[in-house]
Design a protein around this nucleic acid. Structure first.
Lengths: 202, 202
DNA sequence: CTCATTTTGTACCGTTTCGCATAAAATAAT
DNA sequence: ATTATTTTATGCGAAACGGTACAAAATGAG
């Protein structure tokens, strides 16, 4: 690791650059973001962007992948098996809303649902990465729910496959509604109802 | 009505033009669609588009509004109060999937969720119309559910406000997943689980 | 020091973009 | 027929677009 490379050293951090690029894509979408805007936001001129990430689609895919990976980390955290399933779901929705409700002019919602869906038809690789992201999310929740059945937190014979996808469905709705401008209170109420519906009303 | 106008008559039908424009926006998103593409799809040259609808954003808003209105018609149909609530929801999801799963290269999902969310931050009027569309949808379902409580289809004291929003949440998820490429079978299974969850299992 | 290698910054290229100016065409009113 | 009015069609123009060529700058290797 970290063998010193030969030529002129980079004057930027790739990770930070991806974060800056994500901010812009998040607000304006993929097609709505120009390389000039990206260049300004990242403080990198276009040739440097190309050298480091390739063309605009490749950069966008990198940003998507980083978002997916971070989301899975946050999810894994929220699904801590030492907590009750109900608390797990509450943490999942709470951390999601923390992300969705952040934004400068208006709440930005989920990066993938708000921007990748728009490109999913024309850009197959975007669609595939979006699809994989949704699957991974469902899978992690399902895994935790399977454990909940073993422990008796959920009734034996529960369809954890579908329960997990319903839990994700509530998240998808939170994402869309946040982007549409719904208030935090409204969204928290939906999250709470979703938990009650999945785990039983106490 | 239909008083003959003075000048040269239009050689196109505004309604059909909006439908053609919608196809293009649906596949490519708002920012990803150029006026040339719209012009080709609608068989109208740009000045005619401008004369009839205004600029690209105004045209997109017209398309959005038409989609919203049609969706509400389809929804009203599905919510026919002479049917059981369970059948209503089944029709709602079935008719939604009919729309979401149509597409040339890939399933297009919901026009609003797939394309309007991307623009919602930068274009306030898009965000507002998106928000109103979601509210109207929720409201229509809630109204039907209130009736269901009166009739004893749902337990007395049911929180129809939240139940309706959970029913919508399943739809939002169907929309996102359809756009991501999920199969019809997968989506129908989610719809069925959603109905069971809301109306009770059987 | 010299050279190879990599990144940076400027400047540019060809294309596409949105929007409009202008004139021709088609109709109703007079 | 002439005029007023509206739509159509061609085509322009300035700006923005994605992408790259090229030279200067900054490092390690020899």
């Amino acid at each position: 690791m970290s063998e010193k490379k030969r030529g002129r050293p980079r004057a930027f951090d790739a990770r930070q650059t991806l974060e800056k690029a994500r901010e812009v894509f998040w607000d304006r979408g993929f097609a709505g973001t120009s390389l000039d805007t990206l260049s300004a936001a990242t403080q990198l001129n276009r040739p440097s962007l190309y050298g480091a990430f390739g063309d605009k689609e490749a950069l966008y895919l990198d940003v998507m992948e980083a978002y997916r990976a971070e989301s899975m980390d946050v999810l894994a955290d929220a699904l801590d098996p030492s907590l009750p399933l109900r608390d797990n779901l509450a943490k999942v929705y709470k951390s999601a809303l923390e992300i969705y409700l952040h934004g400068e002019t208006s709440a930005r919602g989920c990066f993938l649902i708000s921007t990748a869906t728009a490109e999913a038809i024309q850009h197959e690789r975007v669609r595939d990465l979006l699809s994989r992201s949704l699957e991974d999310f469902d899978g992690a929740i399902e895994q935790r729910m399977a454990l909940a059945v073993e422990r008796g937190e959920l009734p034996g014979g529960s369809d954890v496959h579908m329960l997990a996808r319903l839990a994700s469905a509530v998240m998808h709705s939170l994402a869309v509604r946040a982007r549409a401008g719904d208030s935090r209170e409204t969204l928290e109420a939906l999250a709470k109802s979703g938990i009650d519906m999945i785990c039983g009303k106490t």
